[in-house]
Write a protein that binds this DNA or RNA. Structure first.
Lengths: 301, 301
DNA sequence: CACTGTCCATACGATCCTGTATATCTGCTC
DNA sequence: GAGCAGATATACAGGATCGTATGGACAGTG
């Protein structure tokens, strides 16, 4: 009836998987290399499933067994981090840590003013922003809240729809001044278009929206870089209308022909509903994103 | 850059939440009461969010803060348990632990022969059966595999549909011999019907399938008990056709009028796909449940 | 009211764990 | 090839952690 190895051992196991070496893991955890080594040795002995790593002078290489454990160790680490966040303040206080998972574009272009207002009202609130396009797992509590562009369908989540973001092609005035005029979709072929490089999912969804798009001249998977390229007058690219309209120098290209919509949801784990600061940030995100989405649709008229 | 309290502290925290006392937690974890007390004290000091428990001579009562942490501590414990299971054998060996979450009825009436065959072929396999009607969380890894009656819609899950289970009313021959005859649905009102007691969800789904069902005379939320009551000749109740047909003494009641179907899925976390024993048990469950579902539909013709 | 069982808090000695220091190996650079 | 940087493994002393033992508080029971 042994309930497994000490949880501390799993912590160093996860650190070793991430760092790739005992020394690196020890640095990350504030331990020393001999201690990390002892932990791994103890874990291997306790599991009895053979070695977890093959030692070398260049670090530790995980075995098959260790690789199979990696994702679960990450889940355990995520749970531990979530515990620390939730415990960072009494449940009814408006202070402590809240971790938000958003796409890079929303995080860099849209959220800052919303969060600034929130922090002015509640200086005790500490925000962790997880900027990733791969939707991280709310159930695994990689984050407390998330802004999603695909509908979350998990029943343990509290989800609220806030509308749709308008997407369109834009280019800087200066680029258009020195480039050929654009009267129809066919003209795009003579222009410098900005788009994705290897991100197959994004490329497919673009092709679905605009079937006969010419090949991109400037390619990057980083959408912030795409926006920066558009602003710098490098060519024509896709961006959110509400962001583009802030800058009068950004001109919509064939808005009647090229437009699409991204639905937006705010999501939170149900268990956090009763934690006041989580609920507050959730509501603030709903309000802020609703307002943001609305500016986009107003300007397009 | 402190990464939170020691994970061992979270382990005893969870144990204290479950046990309701330091002593109980210590017993569960193989520690002593002073150690458990020290852990909680250390945790409270590290979090700085006030007390987690109010001490009393009758045990520890969790505060609001502790209650907010309970579900996340459970998630962490589930992750730790999953790690132990996955590590219970090298990934490519057909031995080690597999944890299956199923409903009580399936677990008690349907799975045993399937699992017996599996264990005969692979004696090294160790099976943990989690018999619960509340669908436990596969993403949180409360279990490795699950047999579900509602479609799992989470993208991280590997799901396979195996057909539908036929449900119907049944009664024992001896009960029918001494009771009034049944020629139409209205006759049921004069009979001893067996059904749910307080399980609102099940009652609603029964009412949805058969709107004008008379009030149950014998009530229990335990479906195994319902089946036992039917077999003992206590009255008429709902059960899976494939189970009823094993016993020639169980007679279908108005099969044309009363019948419904429960869809069945086998589900597994995607990450486990590459673990051979998990995949093996998954396939065995798919095969076994497909065969089971088929016997039910063959006998009804 | 005493008795009993269960609980938490505290003191103290033994043990386990950790960190420091050192040896050794490997790959890279000059 | 020497020197360096970074890795793991081992030896040993100090300190943190644990378990044992004990005291006190509370609820239930005869």
């Amino acid at each position: 009836m042994d309930s497994g190895p000490g949880w501390e051992l799993w912590r160093t196991f996860g650190a070793v998987m991430r760092a790739g070496s005992l020394s690196g893991a020890a640095r990350a955890l504030g331990l020393t290399q001999p201690t990390a080594g002892r932990h791994i040795a103890e874990l291997e002995a306790a599991l009895g499933a053979g070695a977890l790593f093959t030692r070398s002078a260049r670090g530790l290489q995980p075995t098959e067994t260790a690789l199979a454990l990696a994702s679960e160790a990450e889940a355990m680490a995520a749970a531990a981090a979530a515990l620390v966040r939730t415990a960072s303040a009494p449940g009814d206080a408006i202070c402590g840590i809240v971790r938000i998972s958003v796409s890079e574009v929303i995080g860099a272009e849209v959220l800052p003013p919303i969060l600034a207002a929130l922090r002015t009202q509640h200086p005790g609130l500490m925000i962790e922003l997880l900027l990733t396009n791969a939707s991280s797992d709310l159930l695994r509590r990689d984050a407390d809240l998330a802004i999603r562009m695909t509908e979350p369908r998990q029943q343990a989540l509290l989800v609220k729809s806030v509308g749709r973001i308008r997407l369109g092609f834009y280019a800087h005035r200066e680029y258009l001044a020195r480039a050929a005029s654009i009267d129809s979709a066919a003209d795009l072929a003579r222009h410098a278009t900005i788009g994705f490089d290897r991100d197959a999912a994004s490329i497919r969804s673009l092709e679905a929206a605009w079937p006969d798009l010419p090949a991109f001249a400037l390619r990057t998977d980083n959408q912030l870089a795409q926006i920066a390229l558009i602003r710098a007058g490098c060519g024509i690219g896709v961006m959110q209308g509400a962001i583009a309209h802030r800058d009068p120098a950004l001109i919509p290209i064939l808005p009647e022909t090229f437009h699409a919509h991204l639905p937006v949801w705010i999501a939170m784990h149900e268990d956090l509903r009763s934690t006041r600061r989580m609920r507050l940030v959730f509501d603030a995100l709903v309000d802020g994103m609703t307002a943001y989405v609305r500016t986009g649709s107003e300007r397009q008229r």
